[in-house]
């Protein structure tokens, strides 16, 4: 079985994220890192491999992004992927969800995976949708927000929370699954794995090499347009204070509750 894990490079959580008013895109300058939610996908792949119910031949990390996104691939490899694929091409810049999902499906198609794993969301885009877009292009069954996944010959048994509680769903492989962050506790990479990551094979692919139609990607291929960026409605800021002396803190809270007749 071959598993492809989609991973994304995102601005570090500590970086103040903002939109660039000129391009109306996310300002991607500053420190970047591997999307934390994607480490759960890699961990899930590792657990399938280690579980022994099926033979996993290969775990391949796949990303689409600028040159710097290589670092996210190195991290993914340090966490357990055997090799990685980097789709990078100037024509892809500015792709919306529709275009990104199409491009990722194309690069995945060239790998013919039995299972595609994604994170529940990208920390910057927060679209929650790429998995289902990719699945339809690949003509594979799919489920998102999966928090439990058992593999047996040719099938997955998945659990996830939807609108009315927990659903258990059986899915035939090949399939596209995006995993929720409760599915596992990602391991820390060993120093040896971190050092060795750069030596593992990394294929760089241009859009044309995986058959991407340039008219369907980038700004030209995107089907949505950001027309304006506005500030959120003014909301009176609450009072936030630090707990230095807990007795005083508690006194303050009690007074606040009392004032509002909550106790």
């Amino acid at each position: 079985m071959k598993i492809c894990c989609l991973v994304k490079e995102v601005p570090d959580a500590a970086v103040q994220k903002r939109l660039d008013p000129a391009t109306k895109r996310l300002d991607r300058s500053g420190e970047k890192t591997l999307n934390q939610f994607d480490t759960h996908g890699i961990e899930a792949a590792m657990q399938i491999r280690e579980g022994g119910a099926v033979d996993v031949d290969e775990i391949v990390a796949v990303t689409m992004g600028p040159e710097s996104a290589q670092r996210a691939l190195h991290k993914a490899v340090a966490l357990g992927a055997d090799r990685s694929v980097h789709l990078t091409d100037g024509s892809l810049a500015g792709s919306d969800v529709c275009a990104t999902g199409y491009a990722l499906a194309k690069v995945l198609e060239s790998e013919s995976p039995d299972l595609v794993l994604l994170g529940q969301q990208s920390d910057d885009g927060e679209c929650y949708t790429i998995g289902a877009v990719v699945a339809d292009h690949l003509k594979m069954p799919s489920l998102t927000q999966v928090i439990k996944m058992d593999v047996t010959d040719g099938k997955l048994r998945c659990e996830r929370q939807a609108e009315y509680g927990y659903d258990t769903v059986e899915i035939q492989l090949p399939a596209v699954i995006s995993v929720g962050d409760a599915i596992n506790e990602p391991r820390y990479p060993s120093l040896k794995a971190i050092m060795g990551a750069k030596k593992k094979p990394l294929d760089t692919k241009a859009a044309g090499e995986v058959g991407i139609d340039s008219g369907q990607v980038g700004e030209a291929g995107s089907q949505t347009q950001v027309l304006a960026i506005n500030p959120p409605p003014e909301k009176e800021a609450g009072e936030v204070f630090e707990d230095e002396d807990t007795n005083e803190t508690v006194e303050k809270i009690v007074a606040w509750l009392d004032e509002r007749k909550l106790i």
Partner: peptide
């Protein structure tokens, strides 16, 4: 977007 720190108006092509 971005933890509700901005609101974008999105139109469709």
């Amino acid at each position: 977007v971005l933890q509700d720190s901005a609101i974008v108006d999105v139109g469709y092509v």
